[in-house]
Amino acid sequence: MSFKVIHYINQFFAQVGGEEMAHIAPELREGKVGPGMALAAAWKGEAEIVKTIVCGDSYFAENEKEAKAIILEWVKTEAPDFFIAGPAFNAGRYGYACATIAKAVQEELGIKVLTGMYEENPGADLKNSIYIVATANNAAGMRTAAPVMAKLALKLMKNEPIGASIEEGYMNMGVRVNFFEKERGAKRAVDMLLKKLADEPFVTEYPMPSFDRVPPNKALKDLSKATIALCTSGGIVPKGNPDHIESSSASRYGEYNIAGVTDLTADAYETAHGGYDPVYANADADRVLPVDIMREFEAKGVIGKLHDYFYTTVGNGTAVANAKKFAAEYAQTLKNAGVDAVIMTST
């Protein structure tokens, strides 16, 4: 008898469509679909995908409560031995959906779960609650991800002991397990020190936790005298995308003058973003970067001034290190220009 598995995937991996289909509500299909083939192949009949749930990424993100309720109901009815989601690689909404629904299945139905994604995916934030296999940042990593996920999933189904995160390929969950090392501590420490002195690579046994939080700045005292800048990760650019900001994995940001611009019209502005359906932003970019309303507030004296430049990039699989660098750079420019506060919009 083989284990019964339910697999969760998005509209893209189900080959329903790309961003233009990201709004679709959850759908329950018989058997395996898309990436489920690779998992099933690795299980060699020991486990079988009985149902596949397909859900649009935007639908899940925008209707989380409804999506969760209907998916949990389906999973409950089917009562599988295991629930597996993704892998989502570096797709932000997909990763968020995979991790969130897997966590809900585990906590509310008591069914074991597994998902997989790239370590910088926002969904990986739940790695302390569920097993998340670390994958490459794009779907080319499916070949390496599927066997790792399939193997760990089968171990979990069989109730076999799970090894350390580094051996099994899942993200560190912050769980410590006691065991005996072959060498005593003093020797390991000296070995590490010698390696460090010789500039050789070594692995720490106690990585320092990284908490990168920035405390909020003081609020504005007088809005009517403040200069406010607009920034976005939604990829709004002058028509034609003059600086060629990439539609995904952006390597640059744009700085554009909007002095005297009262409205972002379809003939002058568009989005360069490849991670959401661009129809609405291309028709009226104020829907992403509200220049029209900021001008109104400026004219009425609600705010002192809308800053003459806006800063923009495409937040779609963009490396965290790049995003950090862009913003650190233009934040200084904004500060030097006398800007008092920033509104950042994201899609």
Binding site: R213, N217, A327, V342, T345
Partner: peptide
């Protein structure tokens, strides 16, 4: 990006649909 703007000393508000990601 919001964090870097905040770090530079400017108050910043993030307008977005998926607020858990913003958190």
């Amino acid at each position: 990006m919001v964090k870097e703007i905040e770090r530079a000393g400017l108050p910043v508000v993030h307008m977005c649909t998926v607020t858990p990601i913003s958190m």
